[in-house]
């Protein structure tokens, strides 16, 4: 009895002390680390598929500025990242899937309202478009948007409510129908009747299509499709370019309120400006985004075929209107879901 009591008491005290000590030591270490580094640390809050690009660009940037700088990266669904920045995630730079998300942050006063004008090309250092990824040999003969609404075609696209990429898909499809004399609403309805799975993000949809074998065609960012092709060695899939698509522009901005508080404005502005330099533009193209620099684009015409592209601003009246028309709570997409299930 005595022995076991002593044993258990020691055991408890030791355990508690060890746990407590490790805990506080580790948290102290963590604090020390962030405190010391905060002067030369930037946080780039971005959406999912840009990670490889920014890993490469961060190296380039660190070499350029000469002073030691750490750029931390946060990636997630564009909407989720937007909410996090609004709720206090200390981003110096946001690089999100669509301008509407940065507008939402600007509305809360964290970014100046004229952010899009501060950098060239509406503050988008790269763009992409929406293409079709189909299974090798294109067994269902999918050539253009019109083929997607045929009976028996399974279309994989994420939920536009949670995925920025899916909104570009939606707008591209809508734009095609409109420019081809079809009733866009009826076309969209027929299209979503062919969607068997709505993942929450673009990466989830790619996995569903590529690894789980669902559906016949994946509506994807061109950069995602090229990456999937590269990963699978181009033996299982091929890319189909439709006759018309959309210019998908993921913009970048410096978060004014945060950089002023942290004293990182100069560094953060250098970071986003540098994205437009030719060496960065080359990284952009190597990571399958279309570069905005014409000189660099000329070197990559093999990778990025010419394509007629719609634009949100001239064809949909800007993101504010497009969001209110299609994606806001109770707007066209929500109404469509109700209709599809009647």
């Amino acid at each position: 009895m005595t022995r076991s009591v002593a044993f258990s008491r020691r055991w408890l005290l030791k355990g508690a002390a060890a746990a407590g000590l490790t805990g506080s030591a580790l948290s102290l270490a963590a604090c020390g680390q962030s405190g010391e580094a905060s002067a030369k640390t930037l946080l780039n809050v971005s959406y999912d598929p840009t990670r490889e690009l920014y890993v490469a660009y961060n190296k380039l940037f660190a070499a350029k500025v000469k002073t030691p700088v750490t750029v931390n990266q946060s990636h997630g669904g564009s909407g989720k990242q937007t909410t996090a920045v609004i709720e206090g995630l200390d981003a110096d730079i946001v690089s999100l899937a669509l301008a509407h998300d940065i507008d939402a942050i600007a509305e809360k006063g964290l970014i100046s309202a004229d952010w899009a004008k501060r950098l060239p090309h509406n503050s988008t250092p790269y763009y992409s478009t929406i293409v079709f990824l189909v299974r090798k040999g294109n067994p269902k003969g999918i050539k253009d948007w019109g083929d997607l609404i045929k009976p028996g075609i399974g279309v994989i696209t994420p939920n536009p409510k949670t995925s920025g990429g899916a909104r570009w898909n939606y707008l591209a499809a809508y734009g095609w129908a409109k420019t081809h004399g079809q009733d866009p609403a009826a076309y969209i309805e027929a299209l979503y009747r062919n969607v068997p799975v709505l993942d929450t993000g673009a990466r989830g949809s790619t996995t569903t299509f590529v690894q789980r074998g669902q559906g016949d065609v994946l509506l994807a960012w061109e950069n995602e499709a090229l990456l999937a092709l590269k990963d699978s060695g181009a033996k299982d899939f091929e890319i189909v370019y439709p006759s018309l698509s959309i210019r998908a522009e993921p913009p970048v901005a410096v978060v004014d309120k945060n950089v002023d508080k942290k004293g990182t404005r100069a560094l953060a502005e250098a970071y986003v400006k540098g994205l437009f330099d030719d060496d960065a533009q080359k990284l952009v193209a190597e990571n399958f985004y279309r570069p905005v620099s014409e000189a660099v684009a000329a070197q990559f015409t093999q990778t990025f075929p010419q394509l007629r592209l719609l634009s949100v601003d001239s064809d949909f009246g800007g993101w504010k209107k497009a969001h209110a028309d299609f994606f806001a709570a109770g707007a066209a997409f929500d109404a469509l879901q109700v209709k599809l299930n009647k």
Binding site: K161, T162, L198
Partner: peptide, 26 residues
Amino acid sequence: IFIAGNMPFVSEITPLLIVIKLEEFD
């Protein structure tokens, strides 16, 4: 969410709807 398919009215669970609302900042 990984296995559900997440189709509204068919396989969309309530916690996912909460997440959607959160991402709309609602």
